[in-house]
């Protein structure tokens, strides 16, 4: 199953997008109390939002974004747009999801 949940709604020509991603967002500063080692950093660095293939937003995240990050943004668009979100983390993993604007 995809790690991204998207909810996109259009009102008066503006599409509001709400998305939830499943990701640990490890900062690299937390220590494992049993071993004393640090958990390696593992966080989403980039999220790209595309509407009908055209880029509408590029998000750069640092490790300070919460676990299972939540994102909202808005753009001028219309109902039925194919909205695609793609994330890329610092370990090279990636995932994407396409949703239709309601």
């Amino acid at each position: 199953m995809s790690t991204i949940k998207i909810r996109a709604k259009e009102s008066k020509g503006i599409v509001t997008v709400k998305a939830l991603m499943k990701h640990p967002m490890e900062t690299g500063q937390r220590t494992n109390k049993k071993t004393g080692d640090k958990f390696p950093a593992h966080f989403i660095q980039e999220v790209v939002g595309k509407a009908n293939g055209e880029e509408v937003i590029t998000v750069h995240w640092g490790p300070a974004v919460s676990k299972n990050p939540y994102l909202t943004f808005a753009y001028s668009g219309s109902k039925g747009d194919k909205l695609e979100l793609t994330w890329l983390d610092n370990q090279g993993n990636t995932d994407s999801q396409i949703s239709e604007v309601k």
Binding site: E54, S66, Y70, T72, F73, Y75
Partner: peptide
């Protein structure tokens, strides 16, 4: 195309 509205949790 985008509107200057953003939100997240930090």
């Amino acid at each position: 195309k985008s509107q200057p509205i953003i939100g997240t949790r930090i």
